[in-house]
């Protein structure tokens, strides 16, 4: 499909470029947080509590006197790790299920997809929340819950693509040459559904970040004192009227990265697969 062309196409879209710049900056900030953060994100400084933004604390301090900028940088690590792990889990499980369902067809297909439809009937947030209650709160469980709740979408997408690709002659050709089922799936079907899958991944990562933030906001994610963007907004809401920067800054970080991902995702969708232009992935 020509990755150079896709990238050049992406560079022609101002919103996609903006999104990529923001994304690189924010991912960089999260990855290099240990070196970039001006303060220890967990360091209690009771004398410095609730300080408005100034030159020492660019985004102010929270109710324990912790530096908010440092906490946002470190919180980004949590959010991004969680979202990426969740989508890796969701994509892997969903792709596997979709491949099996689409390739087997018949009763297996109906059964698997029926179950996926039932899961998909529920809002991703409620599904993830329910799974978190079952698993207990921890960073990995959060990622697992978000991954599982994203799985049906990937399964449905992959199955649809498999059904489409399966009817092509080259699959029959491979079959006639005696290729095994796993080999056909891996060598012939997967490469053909990659474009749709990449678009889906780029758009679902942003949803994963929103859900991760929401669950942390509700106190059902990573336990304190670890900094998370959602947790910081929840903490900040308590002091909203005296120290509005507590809730606004981490919330802005969430909105910004999700926006950047959506811009890039929309751009990728248009560049990679015009067929998907008007679809609701």
């Amino acid at each position: 499909m020509g990755w150079n062309r896709v990238f050049r196409d992406l560079l022609k879209r101002p919103t996609a470029v903006m999104g990529m710049v923001v994304l690189v900056l924010m991912v960089g900030g999260a990855v290099f947080a240990p070196w970039l953060a001006p303060h220890d994100p967990l360091d209690f400084q009771p004398a410095n509590r609730l300080r408005a933004p100034d030159s020492e604390h660019l985004l102010g301090t929270d109710s324990f006197g912790r530096d908010i900028l440092s906490r946002i940088l470190w919180g980004g690590r949590t959010s991004l790790w969680c979202a990426v792990t969740a989508i890796v889990i969701g994509t892997a499980l969903g792709t596997l299920i979709g491949l099996v369902a689409g390739y087997s067809g018949g009763r297996t297909d109906s059964l698997i997809m029926g179950f996926m439809d039932i899961m998909m009937a529920f809002p991703t947030l409620l599904l993830a929340l329910t799974i978190v209650i079952v698993l207990g709160t921890s960073l990995f469980n959060l990622a697992l819950a978000i991954g599982i709740s994203n799985m049906p979408r990937f399964a449905r997408l992959v199955r649809g693509e498999v059904l489409r690709v399966k009817s092509f002659d080259f699959v029959d050709g491979a079959l006639a040459l005696g290729a095994s089922t796993p080999r056909i799936m891996w060598r012939h079907i997967l490469p053909n559904i990659l474009a749709a899958l990449i678009v889906m991944v780029s758009l679902r990562v942003s949803v994963a970040i929103l859900i991760e933030a929401s669950l942390n906001f509700l106190g059902l994610g990573v336990p304190p004192p670890a900094p998370t963007w959602g947790g910081m907004v929840a903490e900040g809401q308590k002091f909203l009227l005296f120290a509005p920067w507590l809730a606004t800054a981490p919330g802005a970080a969430i909105a910004l990265i999700v926006l950047a991902l959506n811009f890039v995702g929309d751009g990728l969708r248009d560049a990679l697969d015009p067929r998907l232009k008007n679809s609701e992935v």
Binding site: S214, A234, G251, V258, L259, N262
Partner: peptide, 8 residues
């Protein structure tokens, strides 16, 4: 609007 978390 799609990107802003509801709680924020």
């Amino acid at each position: 609007w799609l990107s802003v978390p509801g709680f924020w």
